[in-house]
């Protein structure tokens, strides 16, 4: 082994890559910066909002909050996936999550009809019941979320 190779390998060893070096850049920039006391966290805790396992433990309210207020993020995707797992379905026209309250009264190839629970995200931010609602399948968001 030549001296040059050995010397350069030492140089490479000195700057050994770590996992963080090849991670996607996480540029946390607060939307509304505000001077907070230094004993508060200054950046999101790693491993809390980017681990799918964590989303299983979140309250349903939290999931809805993340879904509507973190649009276009990985977090929104994880929230949607978890909601889907908990048998909520997204309505593409009303942009609202629905869940069957009981077995539908009617099921056809194009729609199903019955009583549903939906999440009122525009008004009171709560779950409401809707009877005799027709969920048309063409508005069902049904892409695979893996």
């Amino acid at each position: 082994v030549g001296f040059f190779a050995q010397q350069m390998l030492e140089a490479s060893y000195q700057f050994m890559p770590e996992a963080v070096d090849t991670e996607r850049p996480k540029n946390y920039a607060p939307k509304d910066p505000y001077p907070t006391p230094s004993y508060y966290p200054q950046a999101p805790m790693p491993g809390v909002f980017d681990s799918p396992a964590m989303f299983e433990k979140f309250d349903i309210d939290t999931l809805f909050f993340i879904f509507y207020y973190q649009q276009g993020t990985y977090q929104q995707y994880l929230a949607a996936r978890e909601l889907k797992k908990q048998s909520w379905r997204f309505h593409k026209k009303y942009l609202t999550w629905f869940q069957r309250h009981e077995e539908p009264k009617a099921i056809t190839d194009d729609y199903e009809q019955g009583t549903y629970i939906y999440f009122d995200y525009e008004g009171a931010w709560c779950q409401r019941k809707k009877t005799d609602f027709r969920f048309e399948y063409k508005f069902l968001e049904d892409s695979e979320l893996v």
Binding site: M8, A11, S12, F15, P17, D21, R24
Partner: peptide, 23 residues
């Protein structure tokens, strides 16, 4: 950089560059 910095050559920014491009 490899030629000039020798023992001080730092691979990390280059690794980051290629890794970011791959992703």
């Amino acid at each position: 950089a490899h030629e000039q910095r020798r023992g001080q050559f730092n691979q990390k920014p280059f690794l980051r560059l290629f890794s970011g491009l791959l992703t």
